[in-house]
Computed example of a mutant assay.
Amino acid sequence: MATMRRQQFSLVVDEPVDESAQTALRESCPDATIRSTPDRPGAVIAFRREAPTLTEAIVSAVRDLDAVGVRTAGVRDEDFVSIGAVAARVGRSPEAVRLWAVGRTGAGTFPAPVEVRLGTAYYRWSEIATWLRERMGIAVADPEPVLTAVNLALRLRALAPRVPRMDAIRALIAA
C-alpha cells in the first residue's frame, strides 16, 4: 500500500467560481481553499490533499473541480520569474542577475525572456535553473516537472476540441 503524504499545490481557474460551485466544492473538497484573484476574474484554489504522489493529488483535484463544473486552467508552478525573483532564489542582487541577462557578466547565453509585461521581463525558472547549474556552477534544485507536465496537459485539454486529428497527438504522447 502506498504511503499517503500531504501534497500542497494550487489550481488556477480563469472563470469566476459562482456561489453554487463554491458550496459544492466546500462539501466535496474540505481540503480546498478558494481565493479570488484581484487582477483577473478567476480564482486560485489551494489544496492540501493526502495522496501518495503529487501527480495523483493534482489529477484527483482537477477531477473534483470538473465534477462541480469548475474548469481548471492550470496549476500554479512559479515557473514564470522576474529578475528580482531569480535574484531572491539564488541569493544575488537583482543588478547581478540583470547583468547576467544582458550578457555583461556571467557565462553568457542567459535564457531569453518568454514574456514582457508592463516593462518587466519574465523568464522560465526551469530554463534559468539549468543555466545556473550548467553555466554558472550554482547549485539550485530542479523545478518540479509534474507541475510543468500538468500545465501542458491542461492546455492540451483546452485546445483539443479545436484540433483536427487529436487522436494522432494523443498517440504521440503515448509513444
Results as ranks from 00 to 15, higher is better:
Arg26Ile: 07
Arg89Thr: 07
Glu144Thr: 12
Ile58Thr: 08
Trp131Asp: 05
Asp39Gln: 06
Ala32Leu: 08
Ala85Gly: 05
Val62Thr: 15
Leu99Pro: 00
Arg35Tyr: 07
Pro38Cys: 00
Gly84Glu: 12
Thr130Met: 10
Asp39Glu: 09
Ser126Asn: 08
Leu54Asp: 01
Asp66Pro: 09
Ser36Gln: 10
Glu27His: 14
Gly119Ile: 00
Met4Ala: 08
Glu144Val: 13
Ser36Glu: 14
Leu25Glu: 15
Pro111Arg: 02
Arg155Cys: 10
Pro16Lys: 06
Ala141Tyr: 01
Phe47Lys: 02
Asn151His: 12
Asp167Arg: 13
Gly137Ile: 09
Thr72Glu: 00
Ile173Glu: 01
Gly91Arg: 10
Val70Asp: 07
Ala129Arg: 03
Arg170Tyr: 12
Val62Arg: 15
Val62His: 14
Asp18Gly: 11
Val86Thr: 04
Ala96Arg: 04
Thr33Ile: 13
Arg63Ile: 11
Gly137Ala: 08
Val116Glu: 12
Thr37Gln: 09
Ala67Phe: 04
Gly106Asn: 06
Ile83Trp: 00
Ala153Lys: 04
Ala57Asp: 07
Ser60Asn: 07
Arg98Leu: 04
Ile173Asn: 00
Thr53Arg: 14
Asp79Pro: 02
Arg48Asp: 13
Ala174Glu: 12
Gly74Val: 05
Gln22Tyr: 03
Val12Phe: 02
Ala21Gln: 15
Asp64Arg: 07
Leu99Ile: 00
Ala149Leu: 14
Ser28Trp: 03
Val17Leu: 07
Arg63Tyr: 10
Thr53Gln: 09
Leu172Phe: 04
Ala96Glu: 01
Val44Glu: 11
Thr148Ser: 11
Val12Gln: 06
Asp14His: 09
Pro143Arg: 14
Cys29Gly: 09
Ile45Phe: 00
Phe9Tyr: 06
Ile34Glu: 14
Ser10Asp: 05
Glu19Ile: 13
Ser10Glu: 11
Phe110Glu: 03
Thr148Lys: 06
Asp79Cys: 06
Ala171Leu: 09
Ser60Leu: 13
Glu127Asn: 09
Leu159Met: 14
Thr55Asn: 10
Thr105Tyr: 00
Ala43Ile: 04
Arg49Lys: 07
Val59Gly: 07
Arg133Met: 10
Leu99Tyr: 04
Arg117His: 10
Met136Tyr: 01
Trp100Lys: 01
Ala51Arg: 11
Leu172Glu: 02
Ala2Glu: 07
Ala73Leu: 04
Pro38Thr: 11
Thr148Tyr: 06
Ala112Ile: 03
Arg76Ile: 03
Val44Ile: 01
